[in-house]
Nucleic acid binder design. Structure first.
Length: 580
RNA sequence: CGAGGUGUAGCGCAGGUUGGUAGCGCGCACGGUUAGGGACCGUGAGGUCGCAAGUUCAAGUCUUGUCACCUCGACCA
C-alpha cells in the first residue's frame, strides 16, 4: 500500500473531544473518524486490524467446532416477544416500523435468533452439543457513548451460542471457551487482562465471567485480592469487614434536630459511622409506589446489583416523597411502616449498639440492637466492597481497580430454550429444553484496548499479529534516483515474500515520515536512504523497543521475514505458556 | 434522564464584554531553496461563524428558541 494514496489523515493535534489515550491515538493516526455520537467510520488501517482480530477469533471458535453463521440485523417484534425481551429491554434497543407498519427491531444480541435457528433444525440429542457464532455489526442506543471506541453505539461483535444436553456438558464446553478467550486476547497482543466472575444481569442464567483489561480508564470496578486469586466484578464481589465492637446500650430516643446525614448525626452524638445504620430508599422499577428501603452500616454503601438479586426485582433510585417517614429523612428499621419492603445488610447483624433513625422528624434512637430489638430480621449481603476490606477466601486485603470489559461468557441454562419452546428428543424419547451458553467479544473494543495498553507518547504500538501492515517503509530522499529504485525494488520483493508493507512514497522530510510511522505503529520500520545505500545497507527499527539495526540491502527480505516469524513465535509461545 | 461545558476552514484555536469588510497556526495546491526526527521563502484555494427566529441601518458578537458534540453522574445483554 502506498501511503500517499491511503485515505487516512494523520494529525498533530487530537480532536478536542478525545480525552483518553486510545481515542487520541486512534484519531490522530487517522484510524477512526467520528460520524455521530458513538458512531465511527474505520479507515483501511483500522479495518485491516479489525479483520486480523476477527480471523484470530474465527480460528479459535472453529477449533471448538463452532459454525460461523450470520443472523439478521433486523428482527420482528414477535420473535423477541417469545423471550419477553421485547418488553423488558429499555430504549437501548432500537425499535421501528417497516413499510407495512410491522414492529421491527435492531438486534443487540442474538439469543432469540440462535434459538429460532436451532429450534427448526435440531430435533435430536445426537445433534448436540453444537455451537453457532457470527461476527456482525450491532447497534445499541447507549445512553452515553464515550471514550472513542471504548463505548460506542455501533460496533462489530462476535457472539456465539452453544446448545447442550446436560449441565455438565455445558460446563465442560464453557471452560473450553473460557480457555479460547484467554488465547484470543493473548494472541491479539493484550497482556494486562484478567477473567472475573460477574453478574449475569439481564441475560439470565447462573455462572458468568467477564474478561477485563485492567486500565485506569476502565468504567467497571473490579475487586482483587492482594494475596490470592480472588477477583470479582464489584457487582458480585464479597468482602468481609472489620466488626464494629462496642458495649450493649439500652434503646433510647434522642433529639437530633435538623441533622440528617450520617456524618451530622454521628458528630452530634459522638459516635463513629460504623455504629450507625444507613437507610437508602429505592422504588421498584415501573411502580414508583412500591418502596424498598435498604439498610446497611453507616460507613458502607449499598450495592444495587446485589440488592436486585436479593429482591429478584429491578429497582431505581427513589425520587418521590410520598410518605411522611421518607420525607422526614430519619429512617430507621425500628417501628417502620410494615408495608415497606426492607432489606438488611449482614454488617448490621452483630453490632451491639446502633444509631438509627426514629422515623419521625428531629429524633433518632441510640443503642439499637437487632438481636434484642428485632430478632426476626433477616440479613443479606447487599453492601459494596471497599478498598482494604478482607478477602472472603484467604483473609488478605482487597483492592479495587478499573477495567474495560473485553469479553464475556455466560451459562444461560434453559432461559431461552424454555421460553421459546425449543425441545429436543433425549435418548429415551422424552423431550427436554437444551441448555445454552453464550459468549461475546467486541472487536472495536479490542482495538481500543490494544491502543490503550500498548500505545506510547509517540503513537500506536501494534502487535505483529494484528498490525494492518507488518512493515512500514520510509525511503528518505525518494527524489534520489537510487533511493527510489532500490526502495521500490525492496517493496516489491517484500510483497512477493508475503509481507504486508505500507510504503511511504511521499517526497517529504525524514521527520515527517518518522513521526507518521511512529504514530501509525507498525511493528517494523525500514529506512532506505542515500546514507544507508552508500554502504549498501538498510536500517530496520522495531517500533516497540525502538532498537535500530543496519543490515546488508541484499539480506533485507530474509531479515524481515525472520523478525516477523520470531515475533509471531514469541506471541504464540506466550499463548501456549499462559493458556493451558 | 440530571449537572456542567463547547460549537468560527480538514485539525487546533483567536475574535464575542464595546455590533461596522472573516483571522492565526498546522494541513492542502503551485513555484523555489532544503534534506536522518514535524525545515524555509513566495503565491494561492478553502468558511451561509451549528441551525432558526428576533432586535438593529448593520449580528460571528446582543436576545430567545433549537440541534449537535464532549465531560461527570444515572443507565448499560
Amino acid at each position: 500500500m502506498l501511503l500517499s494514496k491511503l485515505v487516512c489523515e494523520r494529525t498533530k493535534d487530537a480532536p478536542q473531544d478525545a480525552k483518553i489515550k486510545s481515542h487520541i491515538l486512534l484519531s490522530r493516526a487517522g484510524f477512526i473518524k467520528q460520524v455521530a455520537g458513538g458512531i465511527y467510520t474505520m479507515t483501511m488501517p483500522c479495518q485491516k486490524m479489525s479483520q486480523k482480530i476477527q480471523n484470530i477469533i474465527r480460528e479459535e471458535m472453529d477449533a471448538l467446532d463452532g459454525q460461523e453463521v450470520l443472523f439478521p440485523v433486523v428482527m420482528p417484534r414477535e420473535l423477541w416477544e417469545l423471550s419477553d425481551r421485547y418488553n423488558t429491554i429499555g430504549s437501548e434497543m432500537v425499535r421501528f416500523k417497516d413499510r407495512n407498519n410491522r414492529d421491527m427491531l435492531l438486534g443487540m444480541t442474538h439469543e432469540e435468533a440462535a434459538v429460532h435457528l436451532a429450534n427448526h433444525i435440531v430435533s435430536s440429542y445426537a445433534q448436540l452439543p453444537m455451537m453457532i457464532y457470527q461476527i456482525q455489526t450491532k447497534f445499541r442506543d447507549e445512553a452515553r457513548a464515550r471514550g472513542g471506541l471504548i463505548r460506542v453505539r455501533e460496533f462489530t461483535m462476535k457472539d456465539a451460542y452453544s446448545f447442550h444436553t446436560t449441565k455438565e456438558d455445558l460446563e465442560e464446553y464453557y471452560y473450553k471457551v473460557f480457555n479460547a478467550y484467554n488465547r484470543i486476547f493473548r494472541r491479539i497482543g493484550l497482556k494486562n487482562f484478567i477473567d472475573i466472575k460477574s453478574d449475569s444481569g439481564m441475560m439470565g442464567g447462573s455462572i458468568a465471567h467477564e474478561f477485563m483489561l485492567l486500565t485506569e480508564v476502565g468504567e467497571d470496578s473490579i475487586v482483587l485480592c492482594n494475596d490470592c486469586d480472588y477477583r470479582a466484578n464489584m457487582e458480585v464481589a464479597e468482602g468481609k469487614i472489620n466488626e464494629a465492637k462496642c458495649e450493649i446500650e439500652p434503646l433510647q430516643e434522642v433529639f437530633t434536630g435538623d441533622d440528617k446525614t450520617i456524618e451530622e448525626v454521628c458528630n452530634r452524638l459522638g459516635k463513629k459511622a460504623e455504629f450507625s445504620c444507613k437507610a437508602v430508599v429505592f422504588a421498584v422499577k415501573g411502580n414508583s409506589e412500591e418502596v424498598v428501603i435498604a439498610f446497611t452500616r453507616g460507613d458502607l454503601e449499598v450495592n444495587e446489583a446485589k440488592l436486585k438479586k436479593v429482591l429478584k426485582k429491578d429497582i431505581v433510585p427513589y425520587d418521590g416523597g410520598v410518605s411522611e417517614i421518607i420525607a422526614c429523612g430519619n429512617i430507621g428499621p425500628y417501628n417502620l411502616d410494615k408495608s415497606i419492603i426492607t432489606v438488611y445488610d449482614k454488617s448490621l447483624k452483630d453490632v451491639n449498639s446502633l444509631v438509627i433513625g426514629a422515623n419521625k422528624p428531629e429524633y433518632h434512637y441510640t443503642g439499637f440492637n437487632f438481636k434484642r430489638d428485632m430478632p426476626d430480621a433477616e440479613f443479606y449481603d447487599i453492601s459494596k466492597v471497599r478498598e482494604g476490606d478482607i478477602c472472603p477466601v484467604c483473609g488478605g486485603k482487597l483492592r479495587i481497580e478499573n477495567g474495560i470489559e473485553i469479553g464475556n461468557i455466560f451459562q444461560l441454562g434453559v432461559k431461552y430454550t424454555k421460553s421459546m419452546g425449543m425441545t429436543v428428543a433425549a435418548a429415551d424419547g422424552t423431550l427436554f429444553n437444551p441448555i445454552m451458553g453464550c459468549y461475546g467479544i467486541g472487536v472495536g473494543r479490542a482495538i481500543a484496548s490494544i491502543a490503550q495498553e500498548s500505545g506510547d507518547d509517540k503513537g500506536l504500538v501494534l502487535p505483529m499479529t494484528v498490525a494492518p501492515w507488518q512493515v512500514h517503509m520510509c525511503p528518505l530522499r525518494i527524489d534520489n534516483e537510487d533511493v527510489a529504485k532500490k526502495s521500490y525494488e525492496l517493496y516489491d520483493s517484500l510483497k512477493k515474500a508475503g509481507v504486508d508493507v505500507l510504503f511511504d512514497d511521499r517526497d517529504t522530510a525524514a521527520g515527517i515520515k518518522f513521526n507518521d510511522a511512529d504514530l501509525m505503529g507498525m511493528p517494523i520500520r525500514i529506512v532506505v536512504s542515500p546514507k544507508s545505500l552508500a554502504n549498501d545497507e538498510v536500517e530496520i527499527t522495531i517500533r516497540s523497543t525502538k532498537e535500530s539495526t543496519r543490515y546488508p540491502f541484499a539480506d533485507a527480505v530474509e531479515v524481515v521475514k525472520k523478525l516477523i516469524k520470531d515475533e509471531l513465535d514469541k506471541i504464540n509461545a506466550e499463548v501456549e505458556k499462559k493458556c493451558n
